[in-house]
Simulated scan of single mutants.
Amino acid sequence: MAEPKAPAADQVLAILTHLAAQRGPAPAAAIATALGLPRSTTYQLLAVLQERGFVVHLPEERRYGLGVAAFELSSGFSRQQPLTRLGRPLVAGLVDRLGESGHLAVLHGRDVLYLVEERAARRPSLVSDVGVRLPAHLTASGRAMLAVLPPAQLRALYPDRAAFAERASGPADAAPWTYSRLKSVLAEVRTAGVAGEHGEVTSGLASVGAAVVDHLGWPAAAIAVTFAEGSSDELVRAATGAVTDAAATLSRRIRGTR
């Protein structure tokens, strides 16, 4: 890896990224060891970050955690809607390429929340309009994101059978949802690299979706395409490749890389 042109800035960002990945505040010595930094440099950078509010020092615990200024950065991220701005042209490109409707969604608890929908010409209206929430385990977008979550996080979202919402439009002969069934479905998603659903959101329609991941490997969003059940294998293959490529592109863009 090339040497950074601004090493101090690189070190500061490394500290903030490291703290963001921890389950709680961390000792300065542990931060220095994890990042390969001299302890004196680590303490100096933490002092500056503390002065600016990006880090808080917990003297009784001798640890450092993220401060209010770091939270304000995340709030600014939400206000500027970069996912929507960066994702919309990619979804529009999918629609132009495939002639099928596409959308971008994020995970919100056990639901997916749709941020972008691009309707293809002469295609049926979808329930996945902007601002709509649907049960994540029933949608291709949701399954794609759930498949990326750590097992403990997934279990926390679905502690019992009551956590699984059903839709009246789903297949009448479908097995009831359980945590074991969900794990099986998500294992297939991880093997395939994409998620699918067939008539579980809207009868007669199917979707494929792929997860957009952040720099920590967590699901930031998902991109999906919806088409008629029974569509040609050629279309399904094209849609699968297209959403995979679009999700990978958006993953790079939100991480600030090409």
Rank of each mutant, 00 (worst) to 15 (best):
V148C: 07
P151Q: 03
Q153G: 14
Q153N: 08
L154N: 10
L154G: 10
R155C: 00
L157K: 01
Y158E: 06
P159F: 07
D160G: 13
D160T: 07
R161M: 06
R161W: 02
A162F: 12
A163H: 05
A163K: 03
F164W: 00
A165D: 11
E166C: 10
A168D: 14
S169G: 10
S169C: 08
G170F: 04
G170W: 03
A172H: 11
D173T: 13
A174R: 15
W177Y: 13
T178I: 07
Y179H: 09
Y179R: 13
S180P: 02
S180A: 15
R181G: 07
L182F: 08
K183E: 15
V185A: 14
L186D: 10
L186H: 08
L186A: 04
A187M: 02
T191L: 11
T191K: 13
A192L: 14
G193W: 02
V194L: 02
V194S: 03
V194N: 00
H198K: 11
H198Q: 13
V201G: 09
T202F: 00
S203Y: 13
S203P: 00
G204K: 12
A206V: 05
A206C: 15
A206D: 11
S207N: 03
V208A: 01
V208D: 01
A210N: 05
A211E: 05
D214A: 00
P219S: 09
P219C: 05
A221H: 03
A221I: 00
A221E: 05
A221V: 02
A222G: 04
I223P: 04
A224V: 03
V225F: 09
T226A: 12
T226Q: 10
F227E: 01
S231R: 07
D233N: 08
D233G: 13
R237E: 15
R237F: 04
R237N: 10
A239I: 13
A239S: 14
A239F: 09
A239G: 07
G241W: 03
A242M: 07
A242C: 09
V243I: 08
T244K: 15
T244N: 05
D245V: 00
A247W: 02
A248I: 00
A248R: 11
A248W: 01
A248N: 09
R252Y: 01
R252S: 10
R253M: 12
R253W: 12
R253Q: 13
